[in-house]
Amino acid sequence: MSDGPSVTGGPGVGGSRCAAIELESPTATRRAGLAMGRTLPDRALVLFSGEMGSGKTTLIKAICEGLGIAPETVISPTYTLVNIYPGPPPVYHVDLFRIEKPEAMLELDRDDWINPGGPTLIEWPEAALPLLEGESVLQVRMAHAGNDALRRTLEAEGGAALFAALFQALEREDAAQE
């Protein structure tokens, strides 16, 4: 997909890796999210793209659950910009939907929206891309699969070494579904 966010900069040791899996239902999306949350490295930066309704909310709730956060506390940060779920580890859930000009990001300190002590999950990350140059991020793209109202595809792309455990977990999920 070419319209997703992209950040220039190295994926780090081991090059970059991409995985794509089909998710047949919200239950499958949730399982993939749980697996991702359990294998997310310490201070991972994860960027989410995909249109409204593509399953980002379901996936992010499950990732947080995999990280040990009560899923019902995971709500949309569209208005707050940043939700901080107390961990351990604390999880930053960021949504830059309302940031129209990237310049507005300049009013924020890095620590305001990038978690210094745990993972950071960013929805609608476009406005932040200039400030993420050179960072090793995991890009997650959700999309509708065909005309089935429930099926989704999940694409994950990031440093092969940094996210090795996560990619393995996604492979297992993929195999389990088939």
Partner: peptide, 14 residues
């Protein structure tokens, strides 16, 4: 009671 995902106003805005 509370919204477990998007707030109502946010849903309307979006």
């Amino acid at each position: 009671g509370r919204s477990v995902d998007d707030a109502a106003g946010e849903c309307v805005d979006k």
